[in-house]
Nucleic acid binder design. Structure first.
Lengths: 117, 117
DNA sequence: AGTAGTGTGTCATACATAGTACACGCTCAT
DNA sequence: ATGAGCGTGTACTATGTATGACACACTACT
C-alpha cells in the first residue's frame, strides 16, 4: 500500500521535468486548494484530502481516480452507492472475489460486459 | 431506500411483542449505547451511528449487517478494504454490474463460488 | 538589485461525527 | 402509593475532517 502523498509528489515531479506548469503552486491552483495544503498532503503532514479533491488531483496528474482514492484509503462514493442499493448481492460477490486471482475477476468483467453467456 | 431509524424501530417493536427483553433500554444496554441515543437514532433525530454500533445493533435485532449498514448510508469497511487492494479491477466490475439484474449477479456469485467454469 | 515564482511552517477555523449524562414524566405491577 | 422500568428532551463534549490565511526564506531570471 503505497503512500498517497509520496506517490502524488513523485508523479507531479516527473511531469514537471517536461512541463513547468506542474509546480506545486500551479497544480494547487488548478486543483483548487491552497499551495500550503497541497504541500502538506504531498509530505504526509496531513491526511489525504476529501474524495472530491483527491479526484481532481488524480485527473490533474493524469491518474486513475479509483486508484488515487484507494491510496487515500477511500472508495469512490458512486461505487458505494451501487453497493448500497443491493447490499447482500454485492457483499457476497465482493467477499467471494477477495482471494480470486486478478485474471478471474477480469474474466468476470469481460463476460458481463460482452453479455455472451 | 428505507429509513434506518424507522426500520430499526419497527423490527425491535415486532421482536418485543414476543420478548419483553427488546425494550429500547435493554437493547441499548446490550448494544452498548445510552438509551437516549438509541431513542434518537430510531426516530431519526440524529444520523445513523458508527459502523461498529450499526453492526452490533443489526446483530442484536437478527438482521444482516450489510443491509443495516446500507440503510445507514455506509459500506462495510472490510468490503472497502477488498476493493482498495485492487481498485481498478473492482471498480470496473462493480460499475459493469450497476444495471445488471439481480439474477445475473447471483449467477456470477454462484459461478465464482463453485469454481466450475 | 529587484521581482516573480517556489515550497513550507504556523496558526486558526468551520463543520461533522459519535456519542454521554442527567432529568423528566409516564405506566404498571406489587 | 411506590418503585422499577420505560421512552424522550436538553445540554454538553471530545475527536476528527478538511481546509484557509499569512508569512517566511530561497532561487532564478531580467
Amino acid at each position: 500500500m503505497p503512500q498517497f502523498g509520496t506517490t502524488a509528489r513523485q508523479i507531479r515531479e516527473r511531469l514537471r521535468e517536461s512541463d513547468r506548469r506542474f509546480s506545486l503552486r500551479q497544480v494547487a491552483r488548478r486543483v483548487g486548494v491552497e499551495p500550503a495544503y497541497l504541500s502538506k498532503i504531498e509530505r504526509g503532514v496531513v491526511a489525504p484530502p476529501s474524495e472530491a479533491t483527491t479526484v481532481r488531483l488524480a485527473r490533474e496528474l493524469g491518474q486513475d481516480p479509483d486508484v488515487f482514492l484507494a491510496m487515500a484509503g477511500k472508495v469512490s462514493s458512486d461505487l458505494q452507492e451501487i453497493i448500497r442499493k443491493r447490499p447482500k448481492l454485492f457483499a457476497d460477490l465482493i467477499r467471494q472475489l477477495r482471494e480470486a486471482p486478478d485474471e478471474a475477476i477480469f474474466r468476470v468483467v469481460r463476460v458481463v460486459r460482452d453479455g455472451d453467456w
